[in-house]
């Protein structure tokens, strides 16, 4: 049976991990490669690297970093943040990234989704969607600073039709709260599309993961700070889920 996936997310700026990390045995807390290795050894199923580097010039460091990560870890990883052209995707995949995630650029130019899917296959394309619930779930761009007219479910469906292989949905209402994932919206999303859905935003306890895999019907769950600050160990989390009857890779 297909396992539910646990995915730590690392924010990268100028080739370094941004959010604070709290690990023993870590010589350099800012080195994404070293942190990736630790997560891999702890049982992470995949990793996501989100590049928040502002300038195009410095983004070149990302390709070199991706190559170092690919040489080091033996699990799949996704690279996202600021990807806006087929050339960007090509460079990252050639360096050893397994998947790339598109966010704002896909909204601005939906054809980019189909272009990438046709050239490299749907399996490498994660459509990342940041959305906030007011009356409906509105899609936001630029890291949540810009509201659009798009509705989460419709946009996800269009993304699927255009060739996205997975949806990574971050609830802005839940992100940072540690009160649990947006399970109602996740469930609706999972019933709307027939591609895997990754839950993001709100993880605070192990039970939150259990809830999002059951009630939220998520295929994978992503979190950042609770792993970085070692509030939850990936190993412990997976053992907990296993005991609760969730299929996980142990």
């Amino acid at each position: 049976m297909l396992a539910k996936r646990i995915i730590p997310c690392l924010d990268i700026k100028d080739g370094r991990t941004v959010k604070g990390v709290n690990f023993e045995n870590l010589r350099d807390a800012g080195d994404p490669v070293e942190l990736s290795k630790i997560y891999t050894d702890e049982g992470a199923d995949e990793l996501v690297f989100l590049d928040i580097t502002a300038t195009h010039e410095k983004r070149k460091t990302l390709v070199a970093l991706v190559e170092r990560i690919a040489a080091t870890i033996n699990i799949p990883f996704t690279v996202g943040g600021g990807i806006s052209t087929v050339e960007d995707v090509y460079a990252l995949l050639q360096s050893g990234a397994d998947k790339i995630s598109l966010n704002s650029a896909a909204v601005r130019n939906p054809k980019l989704i189909s272009d990438i899917a046709e050239k490299f296959g749907s399996q490498c394309l994660v459509l990342a969607i940041d959305a906030k619930q007011t009356t409906n779930w509105k899609v936001y761009l630029n890291g949540g600073r810009l509201e659009t007219e798009l509705v989460l479910f419709e946009w996800a469906k269009e993304g699927e039709q255009r060739g996205a292989g997975e949806i990574l949905f971050t609830s802005m209402n839940h992100d940072g709260t540690k009160n649990g994932f947006a399970n109602e919206a996740l469930q609706q999303l999972s019933e709307t599309v027939n591609i895997p859905v990754i839950a993001s935003g709100g993880a605070g306890t192990m039970e939150h993961f259990y809830n999002t895999f059951t009630y939220g019907k998520a295929d994978a769950a992503l979190a950042a700070s609770i792993f970085h600050f070692k509030e939850i160990g990936i190993n412990n989390l997976k053992n907990y889920l296993h005991q609760k009857g969730i299929t996980v890779r142990l």
Partner: peptide, 26 residues
Amino acid sequence: EPKLKVPHIGWNKTDGNDDWYYFVHS
């Protein structure tokens, strides 16, 4: 056939074995 989500993405076991392997395919 789209009876479950396609692509088949993630870790799965082969019949009669305990090893987990990573699959990504439609």
